[in-house]
Design a protein around this nucleic acid. Structure first.
Lengths: 218, 218
DNA sequence: CGAGAACCGTAACGTACGGTACGGTAGTGG
DNA sequence: CCACTACCGTACCGTACGTTACGGTTCTCG
């Protein structure tokens, strides 16, 4: 048994419940927000009564699924020891590549779509959950790397948040919005690798030390 | 009278019909995709019968509204004569500022939300309409400016599309996705001006001529 | 003025779907 | 064996909302 109103996501979910949430996710990728409770029950081979007992209502089911997925977002951590120019560059490139893979995935697209559709609602704001565990979590993870790079004299910036946002822009560009709007873009692994390398090179050109010409305005 | 299936958007719309679509837009900003035909009729002071006669069905109404709005997206055109470093910079900054204003507006957010929610549907793909008249239209308008800048020896790049996408990333960064997900961000005019100036400066640092260190990878 | 079109306001229809109830089965514990 | 729990499958209920129908008003045109 499980209270219908959990906050943190993955805690206390049984395997069976995760199976159900997986079914929800698959259905969401296929059908978008039009999925029905009946379809979920059939796909997960469970009864609607169970769905309502576990998750409260339709919104609770979607929220649980989004929280559960959000709790799984993990991007490679970087060891901040022995930071030199090439290891910093490699870390940034790794981040960029991971991030591009995430936002290009079917599940991320489906999740962001449903979160955007339900953004700004009073209770159970899916947009806030996805925002917190997507874009904002990325910022929290990358910022220490940027600060370490500055401490090591490899980067120059005043505001780590501004620097991160620039990096974000150079990496993501128009990819996410185009995919969300249904553009058939789907970059290949090779393209993602290339884009990550380009973005990293551009970021270092703008914020790398010994490049006074390109210092950010802030 | 009007066929329910128009393609290009603003043609053949009477003032009264535009009033109705304006009501739809206002309602969409307030309520999102949950707006009902009854609410539209009440807000627009028209009968549901009229709505159905003019627009066919609910989807047709939303499509007409999105097309109509899309047909209104116009960003300042730049005169390509007398292109020098400062006029190019001013043009880019103007573009960046206009674009940030657009994507920060309530109507753009509402429109993109509904388009994303309905993206990838078979018929009447709102995502495609918004994509075509938003991001892609921006690209078509800015590319000639970039090419003119290259012809004038002010910019260096191989692929105008790649250069534009970088500019797009530097300008938009995480603003659009955050707003779509419900983040209270709402940059002020002053912030937009600052961001536009920063993005332009960064873009010129990367792609401006006489800056060999920062050439794009492609 | 009369006929008809265009439209408003509202009542009515049909249905899809969220949510509930209930009977049936398997497992568990005493 | 009995009581109990947890669950499946399905039938069922209530309602919101898309869609249609219709009576009444205004306007145009002859």
């Amino acid at each position: 048994m499980q209270s219908a109103l959990e906050i943190s996501g993955d805690e206390e979910l049984t395997e069976r419940q995760k199976d159900v949430l997986n079914a929800v996710l698959r259905l969401l990728v296929e059908e978008g927000d039009r999925l029905t409770m009946t379809a979920v029950a059939r796909r997960a081979s469970c009864s609607k009564e169970t769905l309502y007992k576990w998750f409260g209502d339709r919104d609770g089911l979607l929220t649980a699924m989004v929280q559960w997925q959000a709790s799984k977002v993990r991007v490679a951590q970087v060891d901040r020891s022995r930071l030199d120019k090439s290891s910093l560059s490699a870390s940034l490139e790794r981040y960029a590549s991971d991030w591009l893979h995430v936002i290009s995935s079917d599940t991320s697209i489906a999740l962001n779509r449903v979160a955007i559709a339900h953004a700004g609602e009073e209770k159970r704001n899916l947009g806030a959950i996805v925002l917190e565990n997507g874009r904002l979590a990325m910022g929290r993870r990358l910022k220490p790397v940027l600060l370490a790079g500055r401490d090591a004299g490899l980067l120059e910036f005043d505001d780590a948040e501004q620097a991160f946002r620039t990096f974000f822009g150079l990496v993501a560009r128009d990819v996410q919005i185009r995919l969300l709007l249904g553009d058939r873009l789907k970059p290949t692994d090779a393209e993602i690798g290339q884009d990550a390398a380009d973005a990293t090179r551009q970021f270092l050109a703008l914020y790398g030390a010994r490049n006074g010409a390109a210092k950010s305005g802030l």
